[in-house]
Design a binder for these strands. Sequence first.
RNA 1: GGUUUGGUAGCUCAGUUGGAUAGAGCAACAGCCUUCUAAGCUGUGGGUCGCGGGUUCGACUCCCGCCCAAAUCACCA
Length: 594
Amino acid sequence: MLEQQLTPLVLQAVKELYGIDANEQQVQFQKTRPEFEGHLTLVVFPFVKAARKAPAQVAADLGGYLHSHCPQLIERYNAVQGFLNLVIADSYWLQTLQTIAADDNYGQQPDRHQLMMVEYSSPNTNKPLHLGHVRNNLLGASIARIQEANGWQVVKTNIVNDRGIHICKSMLAWLRYGNGETPESTGKKGDHLIGDYYVRFDKEYKKQIEELKAQGMDEETAKKEAPLIKEAQDMLRRWEQGDKEIRDLWAKMNSWVYAGFDETYRRMGVSFDKIYYESNTYLEGKKEVERGLKEGIFYRREDGSVWADLTKDGLDEKLLLRSDGTSVYMTQDIGTAKLRYTDYPINKMVYVVGNEQEYHFKVLSLLLDKLGFPFGKELVHFSYGMVELPNGKMKSREGTVVDADDLMAGMIDEAKELSKDKVNTLTGITPEEADEIARVVGMGALKYFILKVDPRKNMLFNPEESIDFNGNTGPFIQYTYARIRSVLRKAEDAGEKATNIQTIRLNGKELALIQRLSEFPQTVRQAGDDFSPAVIANYAYALASEFNSFYHDFSILGEKDEAVRSFRLSLSGAVAKVLRRSACLLGIEMPERM
RNA sequence: GGUUUGGUAGCUCAGUUGGAUAGAGCAACAGCCUUCUAAGCUGUGGGUCGCGGGUUCGACUCCCGCCCAAAUCACCA
């Protein structure tokens, strides 16, 4: 890398010119701002005091030194105040492009020989996926790809919350009001069908509460005493006891939901290597808690409930088993962790879970550590922000959720509508291809929209305003790619070749593109270190944007000079490759035409 | 109340160990298709970087105080 090449020379320069023993930290390079001439800028302020000279003088001195010691690399320089702008020779950039073009895995970091498990999605089985899950799934899938690019071996996992009071509510409502409806009989996706009964339960439950209140009961008591909730709780108890009738119903309804989820995951383009079910892990969690109890890590209260005392760690006391012996969320997570580490040699565990659960994961980390799991302390809670609607948070019971299936279908419809005139002008296009383009572009718009924002921040989604297809969007990047592909196809037809050209003069836009391309590996590393697909999205946008500007100003195939034409083909090919790779890290597909 | 996170253009967002005159997109306005795909390109307007102090050659960035918003502190998940 350029900076690494120049740093020792700068250290040598300050030593010789001023007698300063500087360290690498003080050698600060940054990309030259567009309003100045140059590509790389050395910030000389760190040396100004010790040099006892004006900043502009130091910059000029260092410029002269670097230029005379490395004329083949540094063609010119200019000093503006404390900034030394270096003009790097074309030959360096041409060589850089050559290296990039020849590398089929450009950006891929060396193998770490370590395994990272990424948990994401983690749905409840009582309702369909909504926009919040979409953010989770897209982030999880993207992070998995980004960490693979950073040399990790990645196992994607999903913990399905398939048991508990929530699913009992749906089951009960279905038994009472369902008349034996099935996905087949209604033509509804299974997850939506179950979700409808979850909503139905809530409606009837509220009705009962109101009736009880009308009879003079206070709200708190009414919520506990309503027959429906008591029945649901009874159902949960029977489930835990293994009541065959309840278990059969539960299995049937969950299977409907899974078929629905599979469909949604498929459309979303996310997948898992291993799926865990809470109904299988909660007992394991209980065992671990019992062990902790025996070993004196936890304690039992008089009512029989089991607790962990975390006051010494600056946290509170945490419940692990209820007084009736049933498990809570934490118990289940402990069990799931145990099973996972028996199944895989995990070096790092990552949980993609919303920031509302930060406290939970702080506690989980501590508890796993206390229980003697080596991975406890280092678990990563990849905590992302909520998706908010203009009038606040989404609430499934209040019907203010944006459904995942509806959202995806809407995006694809919109892409189809928008592209109708355009796509039909493409030669030899079939209706199937046109549909496929609409699907890829619609999903690309949705994915980019969600992934381009910093995961840690809450983000706003306004259902009234459609997601853009112009500007800083997924389709912008896809379109740039499709245009390049079109040019490359034409070049191939004409027998044009991208060859290794080392002798031409570069224009500013070509040079900016090569420099941008050269930043890809560090961008991948940063995205991995920060767990941020947004870093990749921003990079891809900058690259596409710069290419479009170049494409507008210069002809590739129409260029008279054969060497330049060949170089531009090579450059365009490299841009397409890196755009594709970036999009892939985001889980965005690229159309060959659009 | 404690803890955590955030507050940048009308709106949605970038701004990576502190660096030059804080950037994009959308929306508005004005241009550019007989030339490799106009989902594109070029330009104009739009800012007290929540407020006030401090640290220093230099602060959107670091520190302190305050204001606002969100999350969390459950025998919920």
